[in-house]
Computed example of a mutant assay.
Amino acid sequence: MESCTTMLQLKQIQACMTVNGLITHTYAVSRVVAFCALADIGDVNYAHETFPQIPKPNTYIWNTMIRGYGKAKIPTVGFWFFRCMVRERVEMDRWSFVFALKLCEQFCAISKGESVHCRFCKMGFSSDLIVQNGLVHFYAEHGCLDFALKMFDETLVKDVVTWTSIIEGYVVHNCSDEALELFNLMLLSDVEPNEVTMIINSDSGRR
């Protein structure tokens, strides 16, 4: 499957898997869904058609559908999958929330992202660094810099992604002085900036 270059080849492999009974194996069918939803030559609609045929899709498969619709720039369907996870009480992991927040960046309003935020707080993920980083990036992307900074301040252990997300938010929304101040604070911390941080800071200096 990893050598596939077209959807036709994928469907041929899927047919063989069906004949041999492998299509009922969760791992095997997850690779079919992942190829269709995430590969540049895939087809997220075909992944959607395959999904109902899976007896018990695991968390990875659900996450893949959310991520796939985010990649396809169809956030409404991706968010529908997230809501189905909540409604059907599917076990979620940190990536469920990260992909859902990334998806919510494509909506004009922040209400859906706020609902994701509320959900992961209820489920005890509020101290997870990867989820916190997703939240900082979400609010910063929407220009809710006060909320982004609040989430940033509440993140006890900050990595380079945390710092870069908040700095980028201020740069994108033309708050170059604040971005530069944050960058200087980053240099005083134990976190080393990466290439992305340096490029963003360079953009801040030109604004």
Score class of each variant (00 low, 15 high):
82 F>M: 07
82 F>D: 04
84 C>G: 07
84 C>A: 09
85 M>T: 05
86 V>R: 14
87 R>A: 06
87 R>T: 15
88 E>H: 15
89 R>M: 07
89 R>G: 07
90 V>P: 08
92 M>C: 13
92 M>N: 06
92 M>A: 06
92 M>I: 07
93 D>W: 02
95 W>F: 06
96 S>T: 15
96 S>N: 11
97 F>K: 03
99 F>K: 05
99 F>W: 07
101 L>N: 04
102 K>F: 05
104 C>S: 03
106 Q>W: 01
107 F>E: 01
109 A>C: 12
110 I>P: 13
112 K>E: 15
113 G>S: 04
114 E>G: 13
115 S>C: 08
115 S>D: 07
117 H>L: 06
117 H>K: 06
117 H>S: 05
119 R>Y: 08
119 R>G: 00
121 C>T: 11
121 C>P: 08
125 F>H: 03
127 S>H: 05
127 S>Q: 11
128 D>F: 04
128 D>L: 04
130 I>P: 04
131 V>Y: 01
131 V>A: 03
132 Q>C: 07
132 Q>N: 08
132 Q>D: 04
135 L>F: 00
135 L>Y: 02
135 L>M: 05
136 V>A: 01
136 V>T: 01
136 V>R: 00
137 H>E: 09
137 H>D: 13
138 F>S: 00
140 A>G: 02
141 E>Y: 08
142 H>T: 05
142 H>F: 05
142 H>I: 03
143 G>N: 04
143 G>T: 06
144 C>G: 08
145 L>M: 02
146 D>C: 10
146 D>V: 12
147 F>V: 12
149 L>P: 11
151 M>K: 11
153 D>Q: 11
154 E>T: 09
155 T>Q: 13
155 T>N: 11
156 L>S: 14
159 D>N: 14
159 D>S: 14
159 D>E: 14
160 V>Y: 09
162 T>M: 14
163 W>G: 07
163 W>R: 11
